[in-house]
Design a protein around this nucleic acid. Structure first.
Length: 540
RNA sequence: GCCUCCUUAGCUCAGUCGGCAGAGCAACGGAUUCUUAAUCCGUGGGUCCCAGGUUCAAGUCCUGGAGGGGGUACCA
């Protein structure tokens, strides 16, 4: 039997007797938590509980105390005159300054003086609650009712302390929202990776680096949008829910439409929709497209990711390459303040990337020759390539079934790509790997396509678009054959899209960039989840 | 999917050879009117991820499971 409130404390918070079954310690913390959950307004004062319940109970108790003192712990507003960062810029003596923020640190010097560090979106600032400037009754209530983690509104004068800290000297202070749970460790913040992903709000409120990273993402996206808008692009939205997933070679997520009683898929790329718009008369069109691919997860792939795609009529991939360089140099300079940044390599080492100057262009086959030492333009026999692969430690699944172009791709991905720091444009991809790309006029076996590689990651994929409806039909038929042979990533034939093409599509070049990847790279992160606020996690 | 590592107080982390579960921060009580992760005195707080097993004895060893990280495979 565990006694409740059996040890009266001086200055204890007001508390009613507890008409509850007494949680036994042996019953475990869950039962105690259940008890608190069932009686959320009861100011628990259980002598023996776990630490978490102790702290939550203390905060509930303080909230009750505030209410009994006539203070609403959840008022509907607070009139703010300055952000914390702006208030810190004010001259000493500036009067009637009102700020608001979360209490991050509390330094109680005495019963008559408390220093608090508040945090808002703009930053942090010290405020002081003291007898000299704050009503004694208000100070008493706050001293006994305020916790770190609470939101507080403060109005007062700007005061510079002896140590030179710009401080808001409170003439008035109001609890704006009572926090019931203890804050993360005040110095280290949340460190546990899983907690950062599952409870991003804790990561954000306790880690400045995280706040900066996601603010960068927002600025980066806005800068891309602004640059495109300034260059006569139009932003559109195309369907996420569709009957056939197209525009890329990937496995889609499937769902079911009840009213129509048909299966639908989530889009894997917006490509064919945006190209339909070219037929409809759009000339420069883009979309920030949330895409979904039902594939394996690793640090460089998300199931749910954001791609920026654009299409420009009358451009070939040459103009597109130049524009890509201009776009990224401009946007990165503008948002990062520099064209140089440091990435983490897959081996954990640091890699310095410099986006300045002209980016080199290299043929995929030349890259393979240089890195792997085999000239795949000479060695075209699949068996010979397979033998080479095995001799060089490449034992991919289904190697036996791969045709020449896929073998080239495998060799490229295993040898040429991984340790390329870049930025570098890779061109000359085999046509079989690019069913929506334009065939090169001189070399029918390759496409007018480029990829931008940075730190071994494919960041951009682009090509001159295939606008010949008959060629497109032939490519779809080839994909259909792959599909029939069991390749569930082969592109499904889109009759609707071919009908559209037959009305005539202007020459054009299109482009897609992984926003998450680019943000992760620039921010020096190796896991894309660090570039996404709420990554998908298994439920606990 | 496979390999591997991790999971201990609210948070950040120690825990040696299998021998009473630890620290800092946070919380609670007290002192303190210029602090800066305030300081000082005192107190409470544990399902050692879960389920089995070995053992006189398991946070520690073994088996299985869960969640997470990394690698690999698949993959724009």
């Amino acid at each position: 039997m565990i006694p409740i409130a059996s040890r009266p404390r001086r200055g204890a918070y007001p508390c009613r007797a507890l008409p509850l079954p007494v949680p036994r310690r042996s019953a475990g913390s869950r039962r105690v938590l259940d008890t608190i959950a069932r009686f959320p307004t009861c100011p628990l004062r259980i002598r023996r509980t776990t630490m978490a319940e102790d702290q939550i109970a203390a905060r509930r108790s303080k909230r009750e105390f505030l209410r009994e003192e006539g203070v609403n712990p959840y008022p509907d507003r607070w009139q703010r005159t300055h952000s914390l960062a702006a208030a810190r810029e004010l001259a000493e003596g500036t009067a009637n300054v009102a700020v608001a923020g979360r209490v991050m640190l509390k330094r109680q010097i005495s019963k008559k003086m408390i220093f608090l560090t508040l945090q808002d979106r703009s930053g942090q600032m010290q405020v002081c609650l003291r007898r000299d400037t704050l009503d004694a009754e208000q100070l008493r209530i706050l001293r006994r009712g305020l916790d770190s983690g609470d939101f507080l509104g403060v109005r007062g004068n700007i005061w510079v302390t002896r140590t030179g800290e710009v401080t808001l000297d409170a003439a008035e202070a109001a609890v704006l929202s009572k926090s019931l749970r203890p804050m993360p460790e005040k110095w280290a913040g949340v460190q546990d990776t899983e907690t950062c992903y599952r409870q991003r709000y804790l990561d954000l409120l306790s880690n400045e680096e995280t706040r900066a990273r996601f603010r960068f993402r927002t600025r980066f996206v806005k800068a891309l949008r602004d640059y495109l808008d300034e260059h006569e692009f139009e932003e559109v939205e195309t369907p996420v829910l569709q009957t056939k997933a197209s525009g890329a070679l990937a496995k889609p997520f499937t769902s079911h439409h009840n009213a129509l009683d048909m299966d639908v898929t989530l889009r894997i790329a917006p490509e064919t929709w945006l190209k339909r718009l070219l037929v409809g008369g759009y000339e420069r069109v883009y979309e920030f497209a949330r895409c979904f691919r039902n594939e394996g997860m690793d640090p460089s792939h998300l199931q749910d990711f954001t791609m920026l795609e654009y299409y420009v009529a009358y451009w070939s991939y040459h103009e597109n390459m130049q524009f890509t360089q201009d776009l990224l140099q401009h946007v990165v300079q503008q948002t990062k303040g520099s064209l140089q940044f440091t990435c983490s390599g897959s081996d954990g080492g640091r890699r310095d990337v410099d986006l300045a100057g002209e980016w080199p262009v290299v043929r995929m086959t030349d890259l393979i020759a240089e890195k792997a030492g085999i000239d795949v333009t000479e060695v075209r026999d699949p068996d010979a390539l397979r033998t080479w692969c095995r001799a060089h430690g490449i034992h991919d699944e289904g190697l036996d079934k791969l045709a020449y172009p896929s073998l080239v791709d495998v060799i490229y991905k295993r040898t040429g790509r991984p340790d390329l720091v870049g930025p570098i444009f890779v061109i000359g991809h085999p046509i079989e790997l690019s069913p929506l790309a334009r065939r090169n006029d001189e070399q029918p076996g390759i496409t007018d396509r480029f990829q931008l590689l940075i730190n071994g990651w494919e960041v951009v994929n682009a090509y001159s678009e295939l606008v010949d409806p008959d060629d497109q039909r032939a490519r779809f038929e080839e994909q259909a054959a792959h599909k029939a042979a069991g390749d569930d990533e082969a592109l499904p034939t889109e009759d609707d899209y071919m009908l559209c093409m037959e009305y005539g599509m202007p020459p054009a070049s299109g482009w897609g960039m992984g926003i998450d990847r680019m943000v992760a790279l620039i921010e020096g992160r190796t896991n894309l989840r660090d570039a996404v606020l709420f990554p998908l996690m298994r439920p606990l």
